[in-house]
């Protein structure tokens, strides 16, 4: 509802402006701190600047514009290549395993399970914890010196070996394991909500039509979970790209660079090595990847709601 903007008394006119006035601080913050900063980081990625605050003592700029060189350099770095490869492995496994476990658990929980009220929170609580906390738990639990390997040894299987977290070839899978543990319950909740939203009378009709449970799920229920699949994918993909804390807590990117991801790469190049330009360009790549997933998703979500 819009109230007239012209030719009315001052209080009414103020009322007309108030909504926008109230919204403006938030909008200003978002445009400065998010979009302004994004532009700034993009700008930095075109410079050879190495340290903050980018200006010399007399105020002269301490950097040169070097175009896309940072991006060229970035994609020649083996370090970045490892981070990207790891990202591919991590994101792929993480999304697939989370989706499979989430859907599987949701379907099982949807069978009128006694004690669902107890089980559901148990599956979901990891989402409430900090990645640093769960990273710590997994770090020591998987540590060959005191964790699983050592436990199995004391149980009598002396030759058992499980040193993935310390093994360059397998460390990334331990990150996948911990990340799946943390978020699969959440995916379960998303699918469960989707399942509970399906019209029960339709399922009864399908059963009267003679559909077996298997066919019921394969032909009728799972196809109707499309929105849940889409949401799960978008959320998981963006979480995967942003994964940072968990790696820091579990392996700090190691052993060597075996668990380096773009997020940790950016951090170490920017703050560890003072390579602002390279760090910024890697951040820009991360943003573009997320935007490629989120922008169409948000666009369709907001359009539908109109």
């Amino acid at each position: 509802m819009t109230i007239a903007q012209s030719g009315m008394d001052s209080r009414t006119r103020l009322q007309g402006w108030l909504p926008k006035l109230v919204l403006s601080p938030s909008v200003a913050m978002v445009f400065v701190f998010v979009y302004g900063f994004i532009l700034f980081t993009v700008y930095v990625s075109f410079t050879d600047s190495r340290i903050l605050p980018f200006v010399g003592k007399s105020g002269e700029p301490a950097f040169d514009l070097i175009g896309l060189s940072n991006y060229q350099k970035l994609f020649k770095l083996s370090h970045w290549e490892i981070a990207l490869t790891n990202m591919g492995v991590f994101a792929g496994l993480y999304i697939i395993i989370c989706t499979v476990i989430g859907l599987f658990l949701a379907i099982l929980l949807d069978q009128k399970i006694r004690g669902e009220g107890v089980l559901r929170p148990l599956y979901l609580y990891p989402m409430a914890l900090s990645f640093i906390v769960t990273g710590t738990a997994w770090k020591w639990f998987l540590d060959p010196g005191i964790g699983v390997e050592s436990i199995i040894h004391t149980w009598g299987w002396e030759s058992f070996s499980f040193d993935w977290i310390k093994n360059r070839d397998f460390a990334i899978y331990t990150i996948v394991m911990a990340a799946v543990w943390q978020t699969s319950g959440f995916v379960m909740a998303m699918f469960l909500a989707g399942l509970r939203g399906i019209d029960n009378e339709m399922l009864k009709a399908a059963q009267i039509d003679g559909a077996s449970n298997w066919n019921l799920y394969r032909r009728i229920i799972i196809p109707q979970l499309r929105p849940a699949f889409l949401s799960a994918f978008v959320i998981l993909a963006h979480l995967a790209i942003k994964t940072f804390d968990l790696v820091i807590a579990m392996t700090s990117g190691g052993p060597g660079r075996a668990t380096e991801l773009p997020a940790t790469f950016m951090y170490s190049y920017t703050f560890g090595r003072n390579q602002m330009g390279i760090g910024s360009s890697s951040a820009v790549i991360m943003l573009m990847t997320i935007a490629a997933i989120m922008v169409p998703y948000l666009y369709s979500e907001l359009r539908e709601r109109k």
């Binding site: 819009t2 109230i3 007239a4 012209s6 030719g7 009315m8 009414t12 009322q15």
Partner: peptide, 21 residues
């Protein structure tokens, strides 16, 4: 007055109400 007319007038007791809250 929850919506405004695009053109024309609304009067109550002879008073123009178009821009009145």
């Amino acid at each position: 007055g929850l919506e405004e007319v695009t053109s024309g007038e609304i009067r109550i007791k002879g008073e123009v109400m178009n821009h009145v809250h």
